[in-house]
């Protein structure tokens, strides 16, 4: 586990740098806040309604499709690394697995889950 420590330090350094930037902005930036400045940007029009309305179901569909494919890709990694040892039996098993994956893709495609028009 020792070799994972530098990655943790790296993440902390990254967060630290961004934190320093934010602190600089808070410290040195002038504070001349007015009512108009605080309103969210809307192309110069007055703000209408609030955010957090309904959004397109396609984003939700994309998240679902992502979940399926990303998890299945993760299952393939161990096989990819060990492919020479597993040889033909491993390949046939993996091809079966991938064909199920492709079937899923075809199903999504036919059902229109990938359409964005």
């Amino acid at each position: 586990m020792r070799e994972y420590l530098p990655i943790l330090i790296m993440i902390l350094v990254g967060i630290g740098l961004a934190g320093v930037f934010t602190a600089i902005s808070i410290l040195f930036g002038p504070k001349l806040s007015t009512e108009t400045k605080q309103t969210p940007f809307e192309s110069g029009f007055l703000t209408q309604g609030t955010e957090g309305q309904r959004y397109d179901v396609k984003f939700f569909m994309t998240a679902l499709v992502f979940l399926v494919f990303d998890v299945e890709v993760v299952f393939l990694y161990p096989w990819a690394v060990q492919i020479r040892e597993l040889h033909w039996p491993g390949l046939i098993a993996a091809l079966f697995f991938i064909s199920v994956l492709v079937l899923g893709l075809v199903y999504d495609w036919k059902k229109g889950a990938l359409e964005w028009e």
Partner: peptide, 26 residues
């Protein structure tokens, strides 16, 4: 000027750039 829009979630608004920066650096 360091602006935070009205009605914004101050905590999430502040930590959002941290995530971007950390993932770029890692």
């Amino acid at each position: 000027e360091d602006l935070i829009p009205k009605g914004a979630d101050k905590f999430l608004y502040t930590i959002a750039p941290f995530f971007s920066f950390m993932s770029a650096v890692a």
